[in-house]
Amino acid sequence: MDANFSDILARVTRLGRKGSDLLEALGRAGLFLGQSAISVPSREGWRLWMQQMHFVGVLSLAIVLVSGLFIGMVISLQGYTILVEFGAEEALGQMVALSLLRELAPVVAALLFAGRAGSALTAEIGLMKATEQLSSMEMIGVDPLRRVVAPRLWAGFVSLPILTVGFSVVGVWGGYLVGVQWLGVFEGSYWSNMQASVTFLNDVGNGMVKSLVFAVVVTWIAVFQGYDLVPTSEGISRATTRTVVYSSLAVLGLDFVLTAVMFGGL
């Protein structure tokens, strides 16, 4: 009886410690985001940002565009087989465009971005930590949050929305290739149905807002995991995995919340 009670007490204590650990980690991550995102732009900062844009954005372009093309083609193919049963294959353009703009482009681009750029950011910053580059920067009197983290954060914030636009454009084109060129949907109705149902502010705009939110979350997780990891080879590999897992979960979870707010009629 007494042993039982102390056992329960120990469990509750453990739970409490886990909770406070989690809160502490969140607090540290928040402080980290605040301190690094707010930095005065300088000529040097501009150059560093440019470098990271290349690394994070331009180099992710290929995988994002190829995926977008295939996803557009698949929606078109799948959508056609469903719509043709109702004699509504003219609505194919609408279906392709809306599912891409509202849902697939922001989400899939963010997931690909987490895998391609996020994990690389974590590993790179982690390696800089493990080889004491961050420490030595501090000792030289340069804040690594500004010098190393800020350009990467901002590059991520800007890159992902651009990649998402690219994903949508290529996807719509892929849908057109399959639907119109291959399956023979009338070209005029593909575009006009699309234009009639898509509104710029609601669909394109909301998709962009989603993408921006995902950009902040994914990049934040990636650089924080890199900055906060245990500087050993095992620590780096764990943090890289954590980046991909946490980012993916965060993107999918937030997507539900954002969709509910934007399109759920709330």
């Binding site: 844009m53 331009v58 703009l101 636009v165 949508s168 454009v169 006009s192 699309m194 898509v198």
Partner: peptide, 20 residues
């Protein structure tokens, strides 16, 4: 070019896809 492509893509989404 990357950023330019983003802007052009957005214009495409505006004009061609949403019919502005």
């Amino acid at each position: 070019l990357f950023m330019l492509a983003g802007i052009v893509g957005l214009i495409f989404l505006g004009l061609r896809v949403s019919g502005l």
